[in-house]
Design a protein around this nucleic acid. Structure first.
Length: 280
DNA sequence: TTGGGTGTTGAGTA
DNA sequence: ATACTCAACACCCA
């Protein structure tokens, strides 16, 4: 499900609902969600903690509390909601945070792929998983020089490089395909075959696409909703993702779907000509 | 009915 | 270093 724009949207909506709420109790129905520390330490540490801030790093949600930071990744289908405790739990609710106000923060995840890590405040950036992330696309560290250097150092397909969270944090399958279409770069193009101009173009387009998607509240394909249960609107703006067999919005050619690095990959063979690619 | 696909990412293997 | 397969899971669809 969620890539940067969806997580950003969830962050914003959740922030207003859980700020200054104090956790009285944590109930874990599917322990595998909790990756660190043990479920006992996790639950114990959170008791009495007040949430002060909800922020985003790449595709991660961060709940900053008095002494701890909860680092949460939604993977494919994770969702949060804030409900009165009287409201019956949904089928795939796996973690419930009881607030002293009587409300509950609930984590729901059909496929149970999501993860939670709890760290002492201030240490979270130095531990897995956050210490492996590259710069956020909107942050200063994502410079043209940095990105071009990264591309020069590898022979992987550009699509795979953009999906690599240690290069840049936040892009996923939808926004990579959309970015490469607008930047007019074939997804299989070798990263080290791209010119500095092309690298710059990919970078600028990615930032533009992500900003637009944030403004639209993210993309809802199947199941994504924000912290208030609202859908995103960016699916109306998609040019290639999920558009296979339909005409390209730019040139009218048929959008193709192939596999790149095991992921479904959508592109226009006319707007994104296959040059300097792996497969000839 | 069954197998393939789904917005993610880690591990294990060559 | 990189690519491939599998794994974690549930559901949808042809």
């Amino acid at each position: 499900m969620p890539e940067l724009p969806e997580v950003e949207t969830i962050t914003k909506t959740l922030h207003q609902f859980v700020c200054e709420e104090t956790i009285e109790q944590v109930t874990i129905y599917w322990p595998n969600i909790i990756k660190y520390p043990s479920i006992e330490q996790f639950s114990d540490a959170l008791q009495g903690q007040t949430i002060h801030e909800v922020t985003r790093v790449g595709k991660f949600l961060l709940f900053t509390m008095d002494d701890y930071v909860l680092v949460s990744h939604l993977r494919m289908e994770g969702k949060y909601s804030v409900d009165p405790k009287e409201e019956p739990l949904k089928k795939h609710t796996h973690v419930v945070f009881d607030f002293s106000s009587g409300k509950q923060l609930r984590y729901n995840d059909v496929r149970k792929f999501g993860t939670m890590h709890l760290f002492e405040k201030g240490t979270e950036r130095h531990e897995k998983p956050l210490n492996q992330l590259g710069p956020d696309p909107f942050e200063e560290g994502f410079t043209h020089d940095y990105f071009y250097e990264k591309l020069q150092k590898t022979t992987r397909a550009i699509k795979n490089v953009l999906l690599d969270q240690s290069v840049v944090a936040g892009l996923g399958n939808i926004y990579v395909d959309e970015t490469l279409h607008i930047a007019q770069i074939h997804p299989l193009t070798l990263a080290n075959a791209l010119t500095k101009e092309e690298a710059k173009r990919i970078q600028e387009v990615a930032i533009e696409v992500l900003s637009l998607a944030v403004k639209q509240g993210g993309t809802t394909i199947r199941s994504y909703v924000n912290g208030q249960g609202e859908m995103g609107m960016f699916q109306q703006e998609l040019h290639v993702y999920g558009q296979e067999d339909t005409p390209c919005t730019t040139c009218g050619s048929t959008i193709l779907k192939i596999k790149v690095g095991g992921r479904g990959t959508h592109f226009c063979s006319s707007c994104q000509p296959e040059e300097r690619s792996i497969v000839g």
